[in-house]
Simulated scan of single mutants.
Amino acid sequence: MADCLIVDDSEAMRDVAGRLLTGLGHSVRQAAGPDATLDACEEGMPEVLLLDWDLPAMGALDVLRAAADFPVDKRPVIILCATENDARQFALARAAGAPYHVLKPFDRESLRDVMRRAGFEERAVA
C-alpha cells in the first residue's frame, strides 16, 4: 500500500483517481495545485505523487524542480498524468524526476499497471 498525493486542478479527476487508487488499497490525499502540493508534502511526504502535466500558474515542471529539493531518502515516486501521448513531454518529465507516466483518462487497470511498475502492489480492500 502506498500513500499517494493526487495533484490535479480538476476536482473530478482528483476524485476519479482517488476512488481508483483507494480501490487498489492505497491511501489518498489530494491537492488542487502546486502551492497546495508543496504544503501537503511539508505536512507529510507521500510515497507517490500523481502529478497532472497541465497545472495552472506553476506547471508540472516547476513542481518537479521543487521536488528535486526534497531530501533524497524521502522523495516520492512521481507519476506524470497527461492527456497527450507526447514523447517530448515524457522525456522532459523523466529528466526532471518523473520516471513514470499514465495517460488520461485512465482506468483501474492503467493505474494498477503504473503503480506496479513504480514498485507498489495493490492491497486487498476489506
Rank of each mutant, 00 (worst) to 15 (best):
L51R: 08
L51D: 00
L51T: 04
D52G: 08
D52P: 05
D52Q: 06
D52R: 04
D52N: 13
D52W: 01
W53V: 12
W53S: 07
W53Y: 14
D54L: 10
D54Q: 11
D54C: 13
L55N: 03
P56W: 07
P56I: 08
A57L: 04
A57I: 02
M58F: 06
M58E: 03
M58N: 06
G59K: 03
A60W: 01
L61E: 12
D62R: 01
D62M: 02
D62W: 00
D62S: 11
L64R: 02
L64Q: 03
L64S: 01
L64V: 08
R65L: 12
R65E: 14
R65M: 10
R65T: 13
A66P: 02
A66K: 09
A66F: 02
A67T: 14
A67Q: 04
A67E: 06
A67H: 04
A68K: 14
A68H: 11
A68T: 13
A68W: 09
A68Y: 09
D69L: 14
D69T: 15
D69S: 15
D69R: 15
F70H: 05
F70P: 03
F70T: 05
P71N: 11
P71D: 15
P71W: 10
P71L: 13
V72W: 05
D73T: 05
D73E: 13
R75Q: 13
R75L: 10
R75T: 09
P76F: 04
P76A: 08
V77Q: 06
I78Q: 07
I79S: 00
I79V: 15
I79W: 00
L80Q: 10
L80D: 00
L80T: 02
C81G: 06
A82C: 15
A82V: 14
A82W: 02
T83P: 05
T83S: 14
T83D: 13
T83L: 13
E84Y: 02
E84L: 05
N85F: 09
N85M: 11
N85C: 12
N85G: 04
D86R: 04
D86V: 01
A87P: 13
A87N: 08
A87V: 09
R88N: 12
R88P: 11
Q89K: 15
Q89C: 14
Q89V: 12
A91T: 12
A91K: 11
A91N: 12
L92G: 09
A93I: 08
R94C: 13
R94K: 15
R94Y: 14
R94A: 15
A95V: 09
A95R: 14
A96N: 03
A96Q: 01
A96H: 10
G97D: 12
G97Q: 10
A98L: 06
P99V: 04
P99Y: 00
P99S: 14
P99D: 12
P99H: 08
Y100V: 06
Y100D: 06
H101M: 05
H101W: 12
H101N: 05
H101D: 08
H101K: 03
V102T: 08
L103Q: 03
L103G: 05
L103W: 05
K104R: 14
K104A: 11
K104P: 06
P105T: 04
P105Y: 05
P105D: 06
F106E: 00
F106A: 04
F106V: 00
D107I: 01
D107W: 08
D107A: 15
R108G: 07
R108I: 11
R108K: 14
E109F: 03
S110H: 01
S110F: 00
S110E: 05
S110I: 04
L111V: 10
L111Y: 06
